[in-house]
Design a protein around this nucleic acid. Sequence first.
DNA 1: ATTCGCTATATCGATACGATATGATGTAAT
DNA 2: ATTACATCATATCGTATCGATATAGCGAAT
Lengths: 219, 219
Amino acid sequence: MLDLAILGLLGDGPLHGYEIRRRLRAQMGLAANVSFGSLYPALARLEAAADVEVVEPDDEAAPPPATGSLSGERAAMRSRRLVPGRGRRSKKVYRITDKGAAHFAALLNTTSNGDDQRSFGLRWSFARHLGPDARLALLERRRAQLVQQLGDAEGTDGLDDYARSVVEHAVEGISRDIAWLDDLIAAERAQDRRATPLEEAHGTAVPSESSPAQPGAAR
Amino acid sequence: MLDLAILGLLGDGPLHGYEIRRRLRAQMGLAANVSFGSLYPALARLEAAADVEVVEPDDEAAPPPATGSLSGERAAMRSRRLVPGRGRRSKKVYRITDKGAAHFAALLNTTSNGDDQRSFGLRWSFARHLGPDARLALLERRRAQLVQQLGDAEGTDGLDDYARSVVEHAVEGISRDIAWLDDLIAAERAQDRRATPLEEAHGTAVPSESSPAQPGAAR
DNA sequence: ATTCGCTATATCGATACGATATGATGTAAT
DNA sequence: ATTACATCATATCGTATCGATATAGCGAAT
């Protein structure tokens, strides 16, 4: 789950850990209140798996040196970083690798997720990386989940006023989420129809991104 | 967090694990989607800490036998439970102890919590165990958290339509939660005033919800 | 000067999750 | 009647995440 978030953000350019967290808090606001205690281990994990790599200050814009034995010097630099009295810079900037990008695509497309609210919010905010069909499937899946949650929250019998207020508020929230999803679904359908005018659709009809038009409905 | 939920539910009478989970799912609906992988270890934890105890089928309504050497037989029964071919009953019913009740009160009253949505929902659904002042404090604390979250979710600049829709939906949700809290706060204040008629307060000082002052800040 | 607050990385122990195994029990189909 | 299946129920394993805490560089205020 965190891996997905990190790889997704890194897809728009190299970042360091602190900044990744800042964006997660600001962008997914509620959805992701990730702590350092999970973020840094996750970055280490991803680095070990070669999904991301640390970018050296000189590289910055240059693509990976294509290869070759990375000299001992380089390795030392990577681990040493920030010798107390010298050396400057304490940031550790990460860049996504090709392997990481593939991993991201895989994670994003997996149906059957550990899927609360957060997971959906995360996936949807990366929806531009999905095809129209996958987007719709994601929305429908989430909708089904919410509908089921509504079903599970049976009667509020036997609850005192306090507990009942919690349940009722929750139910309202879920209903609201469903309405929101319905808007998104309608918007997606409308867009698909526009992009694929039935019989016409000659040839190169929409690879993927292009103009998301309006998921607007949201409001 | 789970301890709080378990002890709170057990406060209304003995339950077994599966039933605890069922109630958490139904009652706190969204708030608590606890898994068995956390529930059973939590129960074991609480039992080890003597916050809960396993109730034997004959006890049911009887208070703990007051003491004395619990014979080896009893201990054996407790651990053996459900010998394949004999013995009946596979449920393990837990009852809260005095120590557990004290622990619950302590947990419920701790300010400075691991406090997402869930934690607040849980606490509020047990609000009847709190004094009026503690209830108000809980509401105000939660409100402040949400206001701050709104602040953190800065501009939606640089985000594509999908990501933006997530942020906007989240912001609306938070605003809605704040308004809800304002209603609860107003209701609590009204109730306090009614219970403590101050100097004058000639009778019906208009309780009711509505008119939550101004949630202002939002948006 | 030094204290304060912010950026930044890192680790530790406790907790929670998701998958999975196992068995009992009730209930419907063959 | 036996089989098959869904549901109730407890339990454990590995991994992910959390919250607290430590460390340190750095710029601004006191």
